[in-house]
């Protein structure tokens, strides 16, 4: 919570800015200034931001490379879709159920695998992500490989906006708390952290679970926006998509992840007719960023008021 007068002021300004963005977009949708095509991309953007910020918690802040994020998204999408479609639950409980189910999946997968290190962990999470997909393919009640068709479109701009803002605030506050410092200490030097009395396994599992839960949230929103979900949508290439955003933005920078998610969504929309070029650009981003800036474009820095004021040379 803000303490000084000045901080209060900034807090209020932030609220006003957010409310402004929200109202402006809502107005543009209501007056049909944003046609359906832009609306779809706007939805993808919000969903991508949630995915990138949540994966960044695992990959960037905790330093555990997970390649199974799409699997958790799938869990959230399926559970939420089943809730609204078969169990006639309303949307908010369905979103919550989807997120919790994904967090639970994160816990179940995290406990055994997070003992592994580095690339072994990466491969194990990739394997688990694929197993989730294959299991979904084999459940006839959710349509098997053909997936669930005809999900009601319940995801609207207010939900998308709110979910995105909540994700960012929760993860940002977590990182700035004492938990966050423990999590970052795991990334910096696991052995040293352990020596200092940090229960590294517990912090790794917790970060993994929270990240998975938000991926589930993104999945629930996705399912109720795009009418259709099928297991193939959530294969490991989807996980790589999210990884590209995190790597591009900077491993360990929330603002970086947000900017990268926005950039990648716009790029995808612009190159819609040329998927090959998009993927070639992805590949180059991964290689070049790793060779020249292994910490990502923003590194672990955040883009804040200070960055801007320094840029403009004034004092804020």
């Amino acid at each position: 919570m803000p303490s000084s007068k000045r901080q209060w002021l900034w807090f209020l300004i932030n609220i006003v800015i957010l409310a402004g963005i929200f109202t402006l977009v809502q107005y543009m949708i209501a007056t049909r200034m944003l046609n359906q095509y832009y609306q779809i991309n706007l939805a993808s953007m919000c969903i991508n931001i949630i995915l990138a910020v949540s994966l960044n918690l695992i990959n960037g802040f905790t330093g555990q490379l997970s390649l199974g994020h799409a699997g958790f998204m799938a869990v959230g999408a399926y559970v939420a879709a089943v809730c609204t479609k078969s169990m006639d639950l309303s949307f908010i409980p369905a979103i919550i159920a989807g997120s919790l189910a994904a967090a639970l999946a994160g816990l179940i997968i995290g406990v055994p695998t997070l003992r592994l290190r580095g690339d072994y962990l990466a491969i194990a999470t990739l394997g688990f992500g694929e197993i989730i997909r294959v299991i979904l393919q084999n459940i006839e009640e959710v349509g098997g490989p053909a997936g669930i068709v005809g999900i009601e479109r319940l995801t609207t701009w207010p939900y998308l906006f709110l979910a995105t803002v909540i994700t960012i605030i929760v993860i940002q506050n977590l990182i700035n708390s004492s938990y966050g410092r423990a999590i970052i200490s795991v990334r910096e030097d696991e052995v040293a952290a352990e020596m200092m009395g940090v229960n590294t396994t517990w912090y790794k599992v917790m970060a993994f679970m929270i990240g998975a839960g938000f991926a589930g949230l993104a999945g629930a929103l996705f399912a109720h926006y795009f009418y259709i979900i099928k297991p193939d949508t959530f294969n490991f290439l989807k996980s790589f998509d999210i990884l590209v955003m995190v790597v591009l933005g900077g491993l360990g920078s929330t603002t970086g992840a947000i900017l990268a998610a926005i950039f990648i969504t716009v790029l995808t929309a612009y190159l819609q007719a040329f998927p090959a070029i998009r993927m070639i650009i992805y590949a180059m981003i991964l290689i070049l960023v790793m060779i020249y800036r292994p910490q990502g474009l923003l590194g672990n820095k955040e883009l804040t008021r200070k960055t801007f004021s320094r840029f403009w040379g004034g004092s804020a």
Partner: peptide, 11 residues
């Protein structure tokens, strides 16, 4: 290196 390898694969 692993992320680069993924990049090379996609490329």
């Amino acid at each position: 290196a692993l992320i680069t390898a993924i990049g090379a694969s996609l490329f």
